[in-house]
Amino acid sequence: MSGQHENNDASMLVKEALDLYESSLIAYAASLLNGDIDRARDVVQDTFLKLWLADPEKVRENVKAWLYTVCRNRAFDVLRKEQRLDLGNDEIITEHRDWRPDPSQSSDTHELCDRIWQLVEHLSANQQEVLRLKYIHDCSYKDIAAATGLSVGNVGFLMHVAIRKLRDLLSKELSEHPHAP
């Protein structure tokens, strides 16, 4: 009797969570998996299957943070298995990226929003992650802290540094490629 009731609860929870967070989680997982959408789908599928096994009463209170945490850990598991994970070594991440704007992308008619999200790619991995969680996935600082294991203060600091860095990059780019009116 109780098992049936729990199953119904879990079923409803999974269905609601799938409706609300399916696409967001795939995007988040893809951002961690270097844009690999297929692998991101697998990770998200695993995440929702794990949701079936969780206690609905405990998870329901903050299902969003729970999903992002599990999805993140699962994505890192995948990266670890492929030995592609290098946590915390921002220098290596930075070195592998081209800091110069793509000439085809830096024409005068370039749109600001595209530019700014391209510049996000130049931030460190953890700065990118908090920015994406905030602006794409609409997570609060508290959710971000829960998902990433950072403290709320750390999240605030990372966000502050990331935005400041974006301003600097944007100013630098505009001074090099002034926009024609």
Binding site: I26, Y28, W117, I136
Partner: peptide, 16 residues
């Protein structure tokens, strides 16, 4: 900057 990030944030569309 925050407004620009909001406006330009890609909308996730991928599904399972």
């Amino acid at each position: 900057i925050s407004d620009s990030l909001h406006h330009g944030a890609p909308v996730p569309v991928e599904k399972l």
